[in-house]
Simulated assay, not measured.
Amino acid sequence: MRKILMVGVMSILLLTQACTEIKNKENKMKNTETEEHYTFKLSDKVTRQKVSFKNRYGIELVGDLYLPNDRGTEPLPAIAVSGPYGAVKEQASGLYANELAQRGFAVVAFDPSYTGESGGEPRNVASPDINTEDFSAAIDFLGTQSFIDREKAGIMGICGFGGMGLNATAADKRVKAIAVASMYDMSRVTAKGYFDSMTAEQRSQTLEQLGQQRWKDAEAGTPAYGTAGLPKPEQLTGQEPEFVKGYVNYYKTERGFHSRSINSNGSYTATNALSFMNMPLMTYINEISPRPILIIAGENAHSRYFSEDAYKAANEPKELMIIPGAVHTDLYDKTDIIPFDKLESFFNENLK
Rank of each mutant, 00 (worst) to 15 (best):
E60I: 01
K23P: 05
C19H: 12
V81H: 05
G83R: 06
H37Y: 15
F53L: 11
N55K: 00
Q49S: 14
K89Q: 05
T32H: 15
I22Q: 14
S82E: 11
E26I: 03
G72A: 10
N24V: 13
P84N: 11
F53N: 04
E21V: 06
N24F: 13
K50S: 12
C19R: 11
Y38F: 09
I59S: 01
V88P: 00
L65P: 02
A87R: 00
K45N: 12
R71C: 09
K50E: 15
K23S: 13
A18E: 10
T39D: 00
V51G: 02
T20W: 08
L67A: 11
R71K: 14
E21G: 04
G63P: 01
K30D: 14
R48T: 06
D64R: 08
Y38N: 04
E74C: 03
N27A: 13
N69E: 15
E35V: 09
V46D: 00
C19M: 12
V88M: 01
Y38R: 05
E26S: 11
G63S: 04
K41V: 11
V51I: 10
T47E: 08
P75F: 05
L42Y: 04
V88A: 02
N31P: 07
P84I: 04
E74N: 07
F40C: 03
G58W: 01
H37C: 08
L67F: 08
E60C: 03
N24D: 15
R56K: 11
G58I: 01
N24W: 12
P77I: 07
S82K: 07
T34C: 03
P77G: 11
R56W: 05
C19Q: 14
N27E: 08
P84M: 12
A87G: 07
Y38V: 03
L76H: 10
T20Y: 09
E35P: 04
E36V: 04
G86N: 04
L61R: 00
V62P: 00
E60T: 03
I22V: 14
T20L: 08
R71Y: 13
E90I: 01
P77A: 14
E26V: 05
R71F: 09
A80Q: 06
P77T: 08
E60N: 06
E60F: 03
M29K: 07
S82Y: 07
M29E: 06
L76Y: 10
K54E: 06
I59M: 01
K28T: 10
L76I: 05
L65A: 05
S43L: 02
A80K: 04
D70V: 13
L42S: 05
K28M: 14
G72N: 09
E74K: 11
G63E: 02
